[in-house]
């Protein structure tokens, strides 16, 4: 399989590459238009701050390319948020692929939401073989509210979108590459879509 990871200097690229390597997949890291367009599947990782990430994408014109892709696409963590319309983080306009807004946690609980929390109401082949209530690793201060595109939810303390599905775009707020065997299974499920 020709799997391409979008290269825009995102922080967790190496972890995603290693997680795929553990599944026996050698992914190509690239920001080249033709390489990305011809991929069977695309993974879009991301950690860090939304406006700097958007600046990195724009510097490579990836903000023009990514919305036009038609193959199965998987955004992870900030890579999920960037697919949306707008983020409260730095009042940033995002890629605008999924018509949703990204908000900051307003809660008495600790922010960032950091650690292992449960995946619930799983409703996608992305979660084949994953039990309701399975734990996944999160670290984020902004979130996507529940929506018609939500395919899994997590509560902190209110339910938010743990994962999204919109057309060919799949996305997870948690880090499958850091979520132990369950996370590996979710990556494997994406590869099988």
């Amino acid at each position: 399989m020709n799997l391409v990871i979008v290269d825009y200097k995102a922080g967790n690229v190496q972890s995603v590459m290693f997680a795929l390597e553990r599944l026996g997949i050698n992914a190509t890291l690239s920001c080249d238009f033709e390489t990305i367009k011809s991929a069977d599947k695309v993974i879009f990782p991301g950690v860090g701050e939304a406006s700097s990430a958007m600046a990195q994408l724009k510097a490579r014109n990836l903000d023009k390319l990514l919305p036009t892709l038609e193959q199965p696409f998987f955004g992870v963590c900030l890579g999920m948020q960037l697919l949306c319309q707008h983020s409260e983080e730095g009042d940033t306009d995002l890629l605008g692929i999924i018509p949703l807004a990204v908000k900051r946690f307003e809660t008495d609980l600790k922010v960032p939401h950091m650690g292992w929390n449960q995946l619930e109401k799983l409703q996608s082949p992305l979660f084949a073989g994953i039990n309701e209530g399975e734990y996944a690793y999160y670290v984020h201060s902004y979130y996507v509210p529940m929506s018609e595109y939500t395919i899994a939810q997590t509560s902190y303390p209110e339910p938010f979108s743990a994962a999204l599905h919109y057309k060919n775009f799949y996305a997870a707020q948690f880090h499958p590459e850091k979520s132990g065997p369950a996370g590996s299974q979710i990556l494997k499920n994406f590869l099988a879509l």
Partner: peptide
């Protein structure tokens, strides 16, 4: 924090 995000 501004370069890599507070989360790390």
């Amino acid at each position: 924090a501004s370069r890599f995000g507070s989360q790390c």
